[in-house]
Design a protein around this nucleic acid. Structure first.
Lengths: 187, 187, 187, 187
DNA sequence: AATGAATGAGTATTCATTCAT
DNA sequence: TATGAATGAATACTCATTCAT
């Protein structure tokens, strides 16, 4: 019984992301999500008290996911060059491997009501713990956290998004971007 | 025959942005926009053939705006340092001075159906013409256009957006970001 | 779980016919039908997936009705004269007793999109099974089915419809029409 | 100037029929008709005071058309057999040659508000004048006008309509129908 | 816990018609 | 005469949510 419920909730969560991508933010209605999850619309209200809360909760969970993905790949023994390469390439790999979740989070993060509910810093603090260590060891330059965050992640997001819609090959650009970040951030 | 009322069209355009920001992408309905513009919903269909086209058209117009804003400030006699500072600070200034338009474009650009209709490169090509000149004169490093675009603009966007929701002072960060971009891009 | 309310569905079906006849094919809107059935417009979509399907389904049901009505009155022991009289008078009686359903079907059957969805032959085949028996027994002339159908039913429809709008007394004409059909079709 | 106006009104009239058949009775809106006629919606109100009157007027005109078509083909020197054949085949030929007008009239004639405005007898009286002559000369049986009208025209209409949607070949059936009418109506 | 039925309030869009030129 | 602009009222349909089981 416990497991069945868990299955159902998991199915709902995945259905949200799937429908979001298929139908866009405007087309993602409760009933379509319910249908995708093979569940009654009423059942969704067993797990979430309303649509906003539902989105916020799922958004929160998937927001953290990319940082978990990164921290698992970052090792303290890495050189500074390796660390930066790992972060840049790892984040990009995440956008490819978890395309659905990534796109969902991207779309939601521009929706003020949702993004306010989730503070970005909560989830990326582990990544920054490691970065701070490298800064203290004199390996990385001591730029501020907001600037490092902005410079390390948003260009990769930019490539990941535009690489699909535009013509250029994002993978090829990535090699150069890694070098740029290394020359920018390494001492 | 009645002639088209350009005031009315302008009012509609502004109403779109206003309602979008007040209500979010989901709440921006035709009837709310009509009400905001003091116009009948049917009147909107005199100017746009459907909602999607309406959003796309307004999105397109405001998408270009930030690049016009920039090109007006960029002068060929500037040094490389000045050029980068002008771009970074100019783009940030734009986000502040045209906060509504900027936020509107940000939200729309995450909506796949809209952003596909508007190719970013169309409007920023003038900016890149100048950048290419500086690259050819050996002043700026010859990184690829997608990477330069990603690195120059998206971190500023990131500061502009997060500066509002989070605690840090974006203006202060900006000084450092300018230096970062200068050290990264100048030869 | 709430169960389907068959009363409600029946009320909707009757409301469709009522509103159709009162307001004409153009005035028969979902909301008027809902109002007539004392139901929310949205409820109609619980039972039918869209307006076209709704009309087609009700049209189909009532299309069959007149033939059921006839077959119940036709007995194999009847003479040829009696059979024809039964069909002609029976069909006319149907148009009087089920005036609403008859008028509804008449109107819908001129609407190409609806009448294509419902093949007339489906429901009148039982009537023709009996006619074929009489033909094989040499009692009725062996005219083709489309011609017999056209000659037996459409003039009655014609009387039923025009009898209302014009001055003549359709019942009186009917006696003569019976004789005409008998002389035409009997061997 | 007179001619230009006449052109315009004629174009509108034809557009009504065209749009009616393309879009069905529900899709035939003033603006679509205007577009089809390459005219402004407002222009239609120069010629007709509202939609109902417009339809009624055009319906009336086309209602008469089939009878004009017939009377031109009926000659007083014809034998009874020829007369009936001319009426049946002539009416069928009309439905083929003026398919659009015929379908338009068929659809409108089931719309109570329209058909009440146009009394069928007005236009077919010439046809019946000739029939009465043949009756008085003892060539045709003296059935009542409503029955003759019902029996002569509605089966042909029936073939014309069903011949398109169903499989049978209406032209082939017509030969038999002519014989049926001859045996029914001739003395 | 789970769900199909039910709905009031909303959606984008079109309508017949009138207005102002 | 002719028309594009403008609109209140309507359209079919969907929404997030609750009800009854």
């Amino acid at each position: 019984m416990r497991t069945r419920d868990f299955d159902k909730q998991q199915r709902i969560k995945e259905a949200i992301v799937t429908v979001f991508l298929r139908e866009g933010i405007n087309g993602a209605s409760i009933s379509k999500i319910a249908q995708e999850a093979s569940v009654s619309p009423a059942t969704i209200y067993v797990y979430y008290s309303n649509k906003e809360e539902m989105l916020a909760e799922v958004f929160k969970e998937y927001s953290h996911q990319s940082y978990y993905y990164l921290t698992q790949r970052m090792q303290p023994e890495m050189s500074g060059r390796e660390l930066i390469e790992t972060i840049v390439r790892g984040f990009y790999a995440y956008t490819v491997e978890h395309e659905e979740a990534f796109s969902f989070v991207e779309q939601c993060s521009r929706c003020p009501s949702l993004s306010e509910a989730v503070c970005d810093n909560d989830s990326c603090c582990e990544v920054f713990d490691i970065i701070h260590q490298y800064q203290n060891r004199g390996i990385l330059k001591k730029y501020s956290d907001p600037n490092i965050s902005a410079v390390l992640f948003s260009p990769v997001r930019c490539l990941a998004i535009n690489g699909r819609s535009m013509r250029f090959d994002a993978e090829a650009e990535l090699d150069e971007l890694v070098e740029m970040m290394q020359s920018l951030l390494l001492n």
